[in-house]
Amino acid sequence: MTATLCLLAAGAVMVYSASSAKTVVAAHGGDGAAYLIKYVGFACVGFVLMHLISRHGLKYVAQFTVPLLCVCLVLQALVLVPGIGVEVNGSRRWLGAGPLQFQPAELLKFALVLHAVRMLAMKPKIVASPRLLVPLAAVALFGIGLVAAKDLGTALVMAFALCALLVAAGMPLRYLAAIAAAGGCVVLILALIEPYRLQRLTSFMDPWADAQDSGHQAVQGQIALGSGGFFGRGLGESVQKVYYLPEAHTDFILAIIGEELGVFGVTVLLFLYGLIAYAGLRIAQGAQGAYGKLLAAGLTSMIICQAMLNTFTVLGMVPLTGVPLPFISYGSTNLIMLLMSMGLLMNIAQGGVVHVRALPGSASDGTSVDSRRRDSRPRGARAGGRRRATG
């Protein structure tokens, strides 16, 4: 909770710093706090949802996972339909109209993790057999494919998070290696289909060779990071954010942090993500039941994989992906879904439990889900401990 609040505070400061000057210049004296106000509004919505889910959310998760997944798949499919999906900056990733737009891929990412956790908890032996894993893999590939058609970065986060979840579930490494090889081939094919993706893939190797076109954003990000030094130019003193670096308040906000706060600021930010990773894995280790353990591991992996992919992108270690920095970058749907994920993590940490078990003799088809919730108060909140949940 402390790390999350610190990241939200840092996000509000840096979104304002990265967007205010450019907004004023572009609008000839417009409101420099426009993005800050929106960020705070979305953060408040997400914070309320996080609080509600941390108290009551886990007991509904297993019941509504399948309907949620179906709705998210339909919404993501609608994004691909011309005239329905909203195009912003050349990418069609949104639904809605005007200020009421949202990104279905962020909802689908959350729903796929929930679905994978449910399947792995009900049928733990499927990780040991590729044949039994086919139903889960088919749904995951379909969902990731829908997202990858317009948003390869979010699709990669989904794939990495699901692979981490399979590791937590005990999948043999030889199967994971095969999945990774197949995934690499798919990414290469998708890059070859879309010319702009191929440009990103090739320009990443040497962005300075085409610094005015395909390598422009990567080059400006590296200049911003390099000019910050150890302690930075000072908060609000970035030059790159005004005239040179595109999407400074979203995908490349880490470069502005590096320019204004230096290596020290970036290190503190990464330390906060490290705290979330440590706390999430400890929650997974101490959770009651396979479902709680896997859900904590899956949600933690989803957050950390996104943070790592954005960091590697800004540092020039991987091609541009368009993935926002968790809790820091401006992005309504992403921020709200991340806070909802933190609410589930806190619910598990406070003793929430969902028992998901297969009926005798139903390892391959019939399943039964039995959900009970423990007292939501922390350990030791009642004398004599909590009443044990029965499965």
Rank of each mutant, 00 (worst) to 15 (best):
T2G: 10
A3C: 05
A3Q: 03
T4L: 13
L7M: 07
G11L: 08
Y16K: 06
Y16D: 05
S17F: 03
S20I: 09
K22H: 09
T23W: 11
A27F: 15
H28N: 11
G29W: 07
G32R: 14
L36Q: 14
F42N: 05
A43C: 11
F47R: 12
H51S: 09
L52E: 03
I53M: 02
G57S: 05
Y60P: 02
Y60K: 07
V61F: 08
T65H: 03
L69D: 02
V71F: 13
L73N: 01
V74D: 06
Q76H: 14
Q76Y: 03
P82F: 11
E87Y: 06
R92Y: 10
R93H: 04
A97F: 13
L100E: 10
F102A: 12
Q103C: 08
Q103D: 07
A105M: 04
K109T: 05
A116P: 07
L120Y: 10
P124W: 02
V127R: 10
S129N: 11
S129M: 07
L132W: 03
L132N: 06
L133K: 14
I144V: 06
I144S: 02
D151C: 00
V157Y: 06
A159K: 15
L162F: 02
L165S: 13
V167D: 09
A168L: 15
A168D: 12
G170V: 15
R174V: 03
I179P: 02
A180K: 04
A181L: 01
A181V: 04
A182D: 09
C185Y: 10
V187I: 03
L188C: 11
L188P: 04
E194P: 12
L201Y: 00
L201P: 00
M205H: 11
A209C: 13
D210K: 15
D210S: 14
Q212R: 13
Q212C: 01
H216W: 07
H216E: 01
Q217F: 01
G228E: 07
G229M: 09
F231K: 13
G232W: 07
G234C: 13
G234I: 10
Q240W: 09
K241W: 12
V242T: 11
Y243A: 02
E247I: 00
A248E: 02
I253Y: 00
E259W: 07
F264A: 04
L272Q: 04
L281D: 08
A287E: 02
Q288Y: 01
L294H: 13
L294S: 12
L295S: 12
S301M: 12
I303E: 14
I304D: 03
M308H: 14
T313R: 00
P319N: 00
P319E: 00
G322C: 06
P324V: 05
G331V: 01
G331E: 10
L335I: 06
L338G: 03
M342W: 07
G343D: 00
L344H: 05
L344R: 05
A349Q: 10
G352T: 07
V354P: 01
H355V: 12
A363T: 14
A363D: 09
G366T: 14
G366K: 13
S368E: 14
S368M: 15
V369Q: 10
D370T: 11
S371E: 05
S371A: 03
R373M: 08
R377M: 11
R379G: 11
G380H: 15
A381R: 15
R382S: 15
R387V: 02
